[in-house]
Each structure stands twice: as structure tokens, then as C-alpha cells.
């Protein structure tokens, strides 16, 4: 009887995950159970980020500093205080500059409805490049296929959403596809994530009949995929000699303009014809 129970447990334990993977891999968008589970996990991650960030601040800003003060108490106390203040001021200046860039982008693109979002988790594995973000504005619901960008350029699109939380598939992910054009050249193409773990890049696929693209040519979204708004900077064509043939197309390696690792705050844009506030 025990042996039979154990066999049933093993079979159930191995088959249920396969069914879950099959459903998750086949489905597009976000099912209700997924929304609930991602929402729960995202909120816990938000709290964890707050706790670990606070602990790190405490360690860096107090515990280690106490040791330094003890060692240099008589001679260096005043200088340490001033250095700390200067460092804090510098950090604040960098933060202000970063936020100013975000605000500038919102002013430059009045045609887009942009909402600020906080990056709560980032996963870079050999298989996927996906991050999780949380929109800061109350009452804004994320939806799959919303574009995510920074002032430097496009970051990716939301693949799963649960209220104000969403998973973002970045441009470097090998599943990513973006309709693009080369600025000033009139060349249309599709940007495909390289999926390379050692660098954040993508391939621009254009027709063989097009003239060779110059090094440094700027790649922007064309808006033809009806996901990404037109004219958002995506990246720059690298060495044209390194282009390769792929069936009827030619592929150029593209250095992506936005480095998501450098940003704590990103912007979310609604797809054409809808707004961030209209989600489920």
C-alpha cells in the first residue's frame, strides 16, 4: 500500500509540473492564476528588496563607518564627516540627473502616455533575459505588450502582468522581436534578440536587396508591429563587415542603446490605441 502511495506521489509530482509548463509555455498573456501568483511573488520581492536595501545601507553607511571612525577618531573624524556629506551630495546629484532625464523623455514624447515604474527584480540566465517591474502610480494596471523604455532607448515589452506588477522581456532575449527602421536610410527590418549571455545585443534582419548599412547607423522602432510606438531609439549598427546571411535576409549585429541594469526606474508606454489605465 505504501509502495503504491509512493508511486502515485512520484507520478503526480512529476506530471503536474509538466502540465503547468505545457500550459505556461503555450499560453500568451497572463491567466488569472498566473496573475495572482506573480502578483504575490512580486510583492514579496518588493518587500525583500526594501529589506535588503535597508540592511545594505545600514552596513555600508553605519557599521563599516563606525570601524573607520574608531581607527581614526582623533585625526580623521571631521574629514570623514565631510567626505560622507560630499559623497551623499554626489549620489543625490546623479539621482536627480537620472530622474530629470526620465522627465525630459516624458516631455519630449507627449504623444505617448508614459508611467514611471520601479524595477523590483532582474533575472539574467543563459535562457532568458526578463525583469520584473512595479508601476509606482496608483491605479495604473499593466498589460501584456506594453513597451518599457528608459531615456536611453527601448528596454523591452511586458509579457506577463498582474495589476501594477509585470514581467518585462528585454530586447536581448532570444524570443524578442521588434519591427524597426534605420533612421535616415529608409530601411525596414526586424530586431531579434541575440540571447547571448556575455553581451546585451541583438540582430537586425533586413532584406538582401538593401544597401549595406553604415557602422553606427541608428535603429529606431518603426511602429509596424503595433506594439512599440514609432521612433523610439533601439540601438546602433555595429561593424558592417560582421553582417551575416540568414535565408533571404542579411543580419547586422546591433548594440542596444538602453542598458536596463543601469536603471532603477523605467517608463511604461501603452501600445497604440490604448492607455495604461485601461487594463483589467
Amino acid at each position: 500500500m505504501d509502495r503504491r502511495r509512493w508511486a502515485v506521489t512520484v507520478i503526480a509530482g512529476l506530471v503536474i509540473p509538466v502540465i503547468l509548463m505545457f500550459l505556461a509555455g503555450r499560453g500568451s498573456g497572463s491567466s488569472l492564476p498566473e496573475q495572482l501568483l506573480v502578483g504575490l511573488a512580486g510583492r514579496i520581492q518588493g518587500v525583500a528588496r526594501w529589506v535588503t536595501g535597508g540592511t545594505s545601507d545600514l552596513l555600508n553607511g553605519y557599521a563599516l563607518l563606525v570601524g573607520v571612525r574608531e581607527e581614526n577618531e582623533r585625526l580623521l573624524a571631521e574629514r570623514d564627516r565631510l567626505l560622507q556629506e560630499a559623497l551623499l551630495a554626489k549620489q543625490l546629484a546623479v539621482e536627480v540627473q537620472r530622474l530629470r532625464k526620465v522627465l525630459d523623455l516624458r516631455e519630449k514624447r507627449p504623444d505617448l502616455r508614459l508611467e514611471a515604474a520601479q524595477v523590483v527584480a532582474m533575472d539574467v540566465t543563459p535562457f532568458h533575459r526578463v525583469g520584473r517591474i512595479q508601476v509606482q502610480t496608483a491605479g495604473v494596471a499593466l498589460q501584456p505588450d506594453m513597451a518599457v523604455l528608459t531615456p536611453e532607448g527601448l528596454v523591452g515589452r511586458i509579457t506577463r502582468a498582474a495589476g501594477s506588477l509585470g514581467d518585462v522581456m528585454m530586447l536581448g532575449d532570444q524570443r524578442s522581436r521588434v519591427a524597426c527602421e534605420v533612421l535616415g536610410q529608409g530601411v525596414l527590418g526586424v530586431l531579434i534578440g541575440s540571447g547571448l549571455p556575455d553581451r546585451y545585443s541583438a540582430w537586425l534582419q533586413v532584406a538582401q536587396t538593401e544597401d549595406p548599412l553604415p557602422r553606427g547607423a541608428v535603429v529606431v522602432t518603426s511602429g509596424h508591429d503595433r506594439v512599440f510606438p514609432r521612433g523610439i531609439e533601439v540601438g546602433y549598427v555595429l561593424d558592417q563587415d560582421a553582417r551575416r546571411r540568414a535565408g533571404p535576409f542579411v543580419e547586422y549585429e546591433v548594440r542596444l542603446a538602453a542598458n536596463p541594469a543601469a536603471w532603477d526606474t523605467v517608463l511604461v508606454a501603452a501600445p497604440a490605441g490604448s492607455g495604461p489605465g485601461t487594463g483589467p
Binding site: I16, P17, M21, V38, A41
Partner: peptide
């Protein structure tokens, strides 16, 4: 114990699936 260990492993896998953005639900469990 075998059965309890197996079930604990599956629950740990489920938690990791939820914790890791981009992973298919059930991948860590399996």
C-alpha cells in the same frame, strides 16, 4: 524521509518558479 522530502522539494520548486521572473511555471518543480 523519502515522501516528505519529495513533497518538500516540489513545494520549494514551486516557490522558486514564482520567485524567478521569466521561468515557466513548473520548471523548477520538475
Amino acid at each position: 524521509p523519502t515522501r516528505r522530502g519529495f513533497l518538500t522539494t516540489l513545494v520549494a520548486g514551486l516557490i522558486l518558479d514564482l520567485w524567478t521572473p521569466g521561468t515557466l511555471l513548473g520548471m523548477h518543480m520538475e
